[in-house]
């Protein structure tokens, strides 16, 4: 028993020593991630109404997003100014931190009728990549339970061309807007579907 405790200690210390060497020059992952909480919520789960939750999202998506804010490739209000404050290594650490957090959903004012229409659209056009109704962390973040105003902004940016869509997404969105009656309503229906998920 004693041997085991010592060994565990040695293993943890070994991990620390390695981590310590990597972190010697900079802040830890949680220290860095704490700076995000004022806008994105404690541990990255937002209380709304608009700022997106970043808890539980894939590390790759976090890194890609921050890099695109830094370079100006992705439009934003404030994140372009904030992302430039973190080094590539710091962004990686934050990505790892948020990927491990649980995405906590809050009640939003989603309309049931719009949401059920949105579900049909989601199943037809989106589910293939945004699996399980958008609950899975994928290459585009987590959609289920995401803040509705943020989803609207994102759709606006995608459809007006200020933010580029991945090829597959673009063809699906184009198809949806063309095939569905009143194309722009379909986006609002999707927003309500994602916003309705608990």
């Amino acid at each position: 028993m004693k041997y085991k405790t010592i060994m565990q200690g040695a293993i943890v210390l070994g991990g620390l020593a390695l981590g310590g060497a990597a972190l010697a020059a900079g802040p830890s992952a949680s220290m860095l991630a704490n700076t995000c909480a004022g806008c994105h919520g404690t541990d990255g789960s937002s209380n709304g109404p608009a700022t997106p939750s970043i808890a539980g999202i894939k590390g790759e998506y976090f890194i890609e997003t921050m890099q695109e804010y830094k370079s100006g490739k992705r439009p934003s209000t404030i994140m372009d100014r904030i992302a430039k404050g973190y080094s590539d290594d710091e962004i990686k650490l934050m990505a790892g931190f948020f990927a491990e957090q649980k995405f906590v959903r809050i009640e939003q004012n989603a309309d049931k009728k719009l949401a059920s229409a949105g579900k049909r659209l989601h199943d037809r056009y989106c589910e293939k990549c945004h699996e399980e109704g958008g609950r899975m962390a994928d290459d585009g973040g987590i959609l289920a339970g995401q803040m509705m105003p943020y989803l609207r902004y994102s759709f606006d940016d995608f459809t007006n061309g200020s933010r580029s869509m991945p090829k597959k997404m673009k063809s699906k969105v184009d198809e949806m807007l063309k095939k569905e009656k009143k194309g722009s309503d379909s986006i609002e229906q999707l927003v309500h579907y994602y916003g309705s998920q608990k």
């Binding site: 909480a37 806008c39 919520g41 209380n47 709304g48 109404p49 700022t51 209000t77 100014r81």
Partner: peptide, 29 residues
């Protein structure tokens, strides 16, 4: 090289979003 102000030529849509994000900041902080 980081930080700074809302650009002086920001669009009206951006200024509206800043309000929504201000209210979100209030809720979250």
């Amino acid at each position: 090289g980081a930080g700074g102000l809302t650009p002086a030529d920001a669009s009206e849509e951006t200024l509206r979003r800043e309000v929504a994000y201000a209210h979100s900041w209030f809720k979250n902080i």
